[in-house]
Design a protein around this nucleic acid. Sequence first.
DNA 1: CGATCAATTGATAGAGGTCAAGACGCGTGG
DNA 2: CCACGCGTCTTGACCTCTATCAATTGATCG
Lengths: 248, 248
Amino acid sequence: MASPKHESHSCSHCSLSDICLPLGIDKEDLDRLEKLVQGSHIQHDGDVVIQQGTPFTKIFAVKSGMYKSTKLNADGHETIIGFHLPGELIGLDAIYPMEYTSSTTALTTSALCQLDYDQLTDLSAHIPALQKQLIRLISKEINNSNALLSELSAEQKLASFIRNLAIRYETRGYSGTELILAMTRQDIANHLGMAAETVSRLLKRFQDKGVLKINHREVKILNPEQLLILTGCEAQTHSIDTSKLRKG
Amino acid sequence: MASPKHESHSCSHCSLSDICLPLGIDKEDLDRLEKLVQGSHIQHDGDVVIQQGTPFTKIFAVKSGMYKSTKLNADGHETIIGFHLPGELIGLDAIYPMEYTSSTTALTTSALCQLDYDQLTDLSAHIPALQKQLIRLISKEINNSNALLSELSAEQKLASFIRNLAIRYETRGYSGTELILAMTRQDIANHLGMAAETVSRLLKRFQDKGVLKINHREVKILNPEQLLILTGCEAQTHSIDTSKLRKG
DNA sequence: CGATCAATTGATAGAGGTCAAGACGCGTGG
DNA sequence: CCACGCGTCTTGACCTCTATCAATTGATCG
C-alpha cells in the first residue's frame, strides 16, 4: 500500500469532475487536459506532499481523504491555513509568489492528482472555458480565506468550522450530517486560533446541548438548525429580536 | 472637485502601471487594454462604490486615496475584510460567485479605474501575458487573505497591520515611515477583530515605547525594527533564544 | 503490557471586551 | 469669534472568556 501508485486515470470518469477543473469542456479538450494530469498518488497519515518554500510547478487536486496546509510564519509559529477535501485544489496561492507558501500533509490515507501549471496555462490559453474555470476557482479561494475573518467567539468559530466541513462534504456527495474529523483537536484549535482544550470543552458543550453526537473523531450533527444558531447566525424560521445583535 | 470626472487616461502614463495589470505587455496590446478601461472616477469620504450582492461586472483599480471593503455576514455583523491602496485591484473575489461579496466605500477623496471583466477576459484570451498577470493578481489576493489567520495577540495583529500598510505604501512609491490612517480606530479594530478601545490603548503603548509617533490619524514609524519585533517576528540582527517561542 | 500520543477535565490567571465617562477636534450657526 | 453639538478618540473600572498549566483518562501500537 505504501508505494505511490499511478493508477490509470480519466477526468471524464472521475466522480469529482463536476467540482474540479473540467467544467463545460468538450470531449476533445478534455482529452488534452487529461494528458497533463498525473493520476492518483497515494499518501498516508503524515506524508508531506508539498514543502513550503519549494518552487511552484504543480497544482494538486484531492481525490480522496484529507490534507492540511500549514504555514510556518516568520515568528517560528505554525498555522494551519486550511484543510482540503476531495474535489478541492491545492496550491493556487502559490501562483503569485511562484513558490509554495505552505506545506501540505496527508491526514489519513489519501489520494490526489497532479497538474503541471505551465501546461495548464498553455492549454487554458487555447480553451477559454478552461481559462474561465481556472480563474473562477482561484477567485473562490479568496472567499474561503476571507470566511475566517468575521467570527467572534470561540463557540461561533468552532460551530462555523463544523458546519463548513459538513456543507463541503455534502456538496461532494458525502453525508452532510455525519462526518469524520481526520485532524486532531490540536489541529482544529490551531486553525481556528484557540487552545485545544477549548475545542474539547466546546465540543462537549455542543454535545450537552444535543447539537452534536461525538464519538472520538466521528461527529454526527443532530440539530443542524441549532448548529447554525451557534455560528452566530439567527434561525430564519421565526422572526428575530434584532435589537441585540453583536456589536457594531 | 465633486463631479465624477472622466479624465483622459492612459495606462502607459499611469504611475501605477508597474503594479497594476499591464505588466510585460507590448504597445499594441496595451492600446487594446486601455480601450476597456474607464478612467478616473472620483469619490469622497463615505461614497459607496460597490454594493454587496450586486452582479459582478467590473474590476476596479485604485488610482489614489483609500477604500474599505465591508462584508455583511449572515449574523448581521459587518466585517471589514480589507483596505485598498493605490495600485490595488478590487473585486477579484467576486469572480467566482458572480456577485460582489462585499461593499466598497471611499475613506477619503479617492479615484479609481473600472475594467469590464468580460472584455478583460476576452482580451486576456488573446494575450497570454495578460492572462498570466490576471491570474497572478488573483492568486496574490489569496495570500493577502491568509495573512490575518496567523497572528495571535492584539499587539501582534496591530503591529502587523501598521507594518503591512507601511510596506504597501512604500512599494507604491510613498513614504514607508510616515503614513495616514484614513480609517477610524473602529474600522481598524473591526478589521483586526478587536475592540476600538484596544486599538487606542495599543497605539498609546507603541508610542510610549518609542516605536511610533502618533498625531491623530498621522503615524510616523520611529523604530521599524522594534515594530517588526512587536509583530512577533524576532529581529534578525542578533541571534535569538528560540527556546521560548510562542506555543506549538 | 507499558509507552506514547490524543483527548478530557479542573483550577487559575491574564488578555482583552464591555460599559461608562470625559476629552478633543471640527463643522455649523448665531 | 465663540458657543454648541456631534462624532471620534481616549481613559478608567470591571468582568468575562479563554489561554495556560497540570493531572488524568483513554486509544493505539509495537
